[in-house]
Design a protein around this nucleic acid. Structure first.
Length: 560
RNA sequence: GCCGCCGUAGCUCAGCCGGUAGAGCGCCGCCCUGGUAAGGCGGAGGCCCCGGGUUCAAACCCCGGCGGCGGCUCCA
């Protein structure tokens, strides 16, 4: 959708115009799949989006911030420029260009922001997207609109899932009953996987003495993100991570090589004091729940553990439709600053590589991008709007076993240090939830839907019948609601659709007489005169298998 | 944290140059007793984010907070 060369041309034009008008020094432009960003050294002056729109062209009648820039002669003679000199202003340009004639460029100014890479440098960044036709521009504006409709913050309110409150504090989520259903379903899934991998679930405190955080190193490396309190002369800190707690459990008993691997998991809610401007809906909060787990292993056990986790992680993502080209796996290796021995790093990295290769996964190696305490594997996936996300992670850790002086006794009675693997499948339940809400536009698969079916009696005297039907579904743990009341049938159907309910069961005189129901699903699909028991059975199967599609309605339609 | 923008009914928003507030949807009630994506009529609902200042008078102007949005940096 975003044309790289075109963006680069637009960068030249915009840079020259802004530089000339404000006497800003252009610092270069960069082009990404999200559009174009041009930086300027401004000396502390910041024009508004409005000012720039006015400067760059005519504002569209429809309220969109678009403008047209006409081709300039100097552009034609550029060749493959790295730097453009226009009216004595030097404009460096990143990336390669394939020049070609451009008649008009349509630019959408997204935003103007400041960027402070250092204490004495303040630069202005103008974010834009450029198009070669009005149609493309309008397409893009529509995509923006579509993305906004899927915004989990908006859907979260509309579907009554969660809320934030000024008096509660920024970045702190309150889950409503329906949001909690989704949360619980995600946790249930992760719990099943953890069980199958041999993880034993634990529960640990939310607050520890700072002594613990000193041992773990958080107090020196992570202090500015921690919530600390002095109570009766002793300092306590709210946990930003679950690992120290799990390590204490490991250390509560002497461990032998026979005890390993020891695997502990926890749905632990952690708190990290993120900076104000970093908060963003459920995607970036100050309190969140991790589907955390730690495996304490002998060195020779790392590969098999990582392999098992990876396989389950990929399976889990496929449940949501993330698979194939929409998955990207990467291995991050030893950075310049690291702890532990090179030998240990090499062994661990080799184990991760082998795990990846034995599964037959393609992966990128990110040289030097590992954490200081160990190498890691990240699994990224792409959602239905084409955005990449990283949730699942598997990290080897040499640091904490050392800091906590963790040991086990090997077969010869010697003390050995275990290797620790941190892993999460969903990552943060909150973030994962936000991603799938946007991915599915709120229309979650049936197993995840807070309300799975709504029963609508056509007339009031069928309300008892509807309640009776609801009872049958509820007894099988189908999340069911009855939409009765004085509003019209059409309105209640509409309401059910706008609440993203997967199945609408309609019961009228005709159905009641025959002991049948009408089943309506997403995409305006409807099966009339269906036996309730038959639908129930198909629905149970759809939910049990965590199907991505609405297999129940599809089977019913196939049968008709 | 930094830069810009914003905060009016449950939600989305209007309210001009200062004269103490409006719409649509939703909610509640009544009517309609219904056949598939908004049936009709009526009603209630507002510390105009908070605190201070200017003014005869502030939703509107100024200052400070809090919260939200778009970016930057960082991250699950």
């Amino acid at each position: 959708m975003i044309d790289q060369d075109l963006q680069a041309y637009a960068g030249l034009l915009v840079s020259s115009i802004i530089a000339e008008k404000y006497r800003f020094k252009p610092l270069g432009c960069s082009v990404s799949d999200r559009g174009l960003a041009c930086d300027f050294d401004t000396g502390g002056i910041y024009p508004s989006v409005n000012e720039l729109q006015n400067l760059l062209g005519v504002i569209d009648g429809g309220g969109s911030v678009t403008c047209e820039i006409r081709e300039d002669e100097y552009l034609q003679s550029l060749g493959r420029p790295k730097v453009c000199i226009h009216k004595n202003i030097e404009i460096p340009l990143e990336g390669e260009l394939n020049p070609r004639p451009v008649k008009k460029i349509y630019i959408h100014v997204i935003n103007v922001s400041a960027h402070n890479p250092g204490p004495n440098i303040s630069l202005l960044r103008v974010n834009m997207a450029a198009f070669d036709s009005r149609e493309r521009l309008e397409e893009y504006l529509k995509w923006l609109e579509e993305a906004e409709k899927r915004d989990h913050r908006i859907l979260g309110r509309k579907l009554d899932l969660f809320s934030f409150h000024e008096e509660a504090g920024a970045g702190l989520v309150l889950y409503h009953p329906k949001g909690q259903v989704i949360r619980e379903e995600l946790i249930k899934l992760a719990r099943e996987i953890n069980d199958s991998l041999g993880y034993k679930e634990v529960y640990t405190p939310h607050v520890y003495r700072s002594l613990l955080w000193r041992i773990s190193g958080h107090l020196s490396h992570y202090k500015d993100k921690m919530i600390l309190a002095n109570i009766e002369g002793d300092e306590y800190g709210v946990k930003p991570m679950n690992c120290p707690g799990h390590i204490l459990i490991y250390k509560s008993l002497p461990r032998s090589y026979r005890d390993l691997p020891l695997k502990l998991s926890e749905f632990g809610t952690v708190y990290r004091w993120e900076k104000r401007g970093e908060l963003y809906g459920l995607l970036r909060v100050r309190g969140f729940t991790q589907d955390d787990g730690h495996a304490f292993l002998r060195e020779d056990q790392v590969k098999d553990e990582v392999k098992a986790i990876l396989e389950k992680l990929l399976w889990m993502l496929s449940l949501f439709g993330f698979k194939g080209d929409d998955i990207k796996v990467s291995l991050s290796t030893r950075p310049e600053e690291y702890i532990g021995t090179i030998d240990a790093w090499d062994k661990a990295t080799e184990a991760l590589k082998l795990a990846l290769e034995e599964i037959g996964l393609k992966y990128d190696v990110k040289e030097g991008e590992g954490a200081f305490y160990g190498p890691k594997i990240d699994v990224d996936f792409r959602d239905s709007l084409g955005r990449w996300w990283q949730c699942g992670t598997i990290q080897v850790d040499f640091n904490l076993p050392e800091r906590f002086n963790m040991v086990y006794t090997d077969e010869k009675g010697r003390e050995r240090r275990p290797v620790m693997v941190h892993r999460a499948l969903l990552g943060s339940v909150e973030r994962f939830m936000a991603i799938i809400i946007e991915n599915f536009s709120g229309r979650l698969p049936t197993w995840l839907s807070p309300v799975q079916i709504v029963i609508i009696p056509v007339s009031r005297n069928l309300e008892d019948k509807a309640v009776e039907l609801a009872k049958m579904f509820k007894e099988k743990d189908i999340r069911t609601e009855v939409f009765s009341g004085s509003s019209s049938l059409g309105k209640r159907v509409r309401e059910a659709y706008s609440q993203a309910i997967p199945y609408i069961v309609v019961i009228g005189e005709k159905e009641a007489e025959a002991g049948m129901i009408t089943v309506r699903a997403r995409g305006n699909r409807e099966a009339r005169m269906v036996k309730p028991e038959q639908f129930l059975e198909l629905l149970l199967e759809e939910i049990k298998d965590r199907k991505l599609n609405q297999s129940a309605i599809e089977s019913l339609l196939d049968l008709q």
